[in-house]
């Protein structure tokens, strides 16, 4: 045996995922569907928020959702009440979604029949941050009951997201939520990030957020057609 030597290989560990994510993004663009992924910690109200989003977008848009969950199909059952097509991706023990799982789940769906597709990631603020799913917009959700400093505790996921939504605003008085502290915390890990404050339960703040999504879809289509 000869002496060990060093060979440079420069290989991205997540290359396989990134290649699939790029191909998905291209498919989404071609089909004219705007894709939003949702990340949050468990119990932040992601499923209620998504159910309301689907229900309120439906009169004007064709919407669908993919839902990642560790073991149960409870979330998909709840979302099915919105009457939108919903498919569950059960990840088993895996703590995040990967692009290949999204690709498999979409195989028998005609993306041309959709305006919006939502991908609900597994409730986890750590692992999903490393995996590109081909989404157009990554939305990070936190609730007022989680505390204002959540962004500082999970800077990587907040930094990887495009938009922050703070939910359960109807409880902000009870928990004495400090809105300025939360805004500063987000601003310090992701300067300039757009923030929505709303209550999925009462509907307060939902119209501004839904209008924002409508504009994003319109902008994406304008770019594709120009």
């Amino acid at each position: 045996m000869s002496e060990p030597r060093l060979v440079e290989v420069r290989r991205n560990v997540l290359k396989q995922n990134d290649v699939i994510a790029r191909s998905l993004r291209e498919q989404f663009r071609f089909a004219g569907v705007f894709v939003v992924s949702l990340v949050s910690s468990p119990g932040s109200g992601k499923t209620t928020f998504l159910e309301k989003t689907l229900t309120q977008l439906q009169p004007r848009y064709r919407v669908a959702a993919l839902v990642g969950d560790l073991a149960t199909e409870n979330d998909a059952a709840r979302l099915a009440r919105s009457k939108a097509p919903v498919k569950q991706i059960t990840t088993g023990t895996l703590c995040h979604l990967e692009a290949a799982m999204v690709q498999n789940a979409l195989q028998d769906w005609d993306l041309h029949q959709l305006d919006f597709l939502f991908i609900e990631n597994v409730g986890n603020l750590v692992c999903p941050s490393s995996y590109d799913l081909g989404e157009n917009l990554r939305l990070v959700l936190m609730s007022v009951t989680e505390g204002e400093d959540k962004p500082q505790k999970y800077p990587t996921i907040f930094n990887s997201a495009d938009v922050a939504v703070i939910t359960k605003n109807e409880l902000s008085g009870v928990v004495e939520f400090d809105w300025d502290a939360a805004r500063k915390s987000i601003e310090s890990v992701r300067p300039g990030m757009k923030i929505f404050r709303l209550s999925a339960k009462t509907g307060e703040g939902m119209p501004e957020y839904l209008d924002f999504l409508s504009r994003q879809l319109a902008e994406q289509r304008a770019v594709v057609h120009s």
Binding site: E3, L6, V9, R10, N12, N159, E187, R190, P191, G192
Partner: peptide, 30 residues
């Protein structure tokens, strides 16, 4: 990573040039 501000002038910045690497850079081989 808790503070995306310039260490010199304290301006906020969101333009990340490096820091997301997850790369097998080299192998020691026989």
């Amino acid at each position: 990573v808790q503070s995306f501000t310039c260490p010199e002038c304290a301006s906020p910045t969101r333009e990340v040039l490096q820091g997301k690497e997850l790369e097998v850079f080299a192998l020691e081989v026989e």
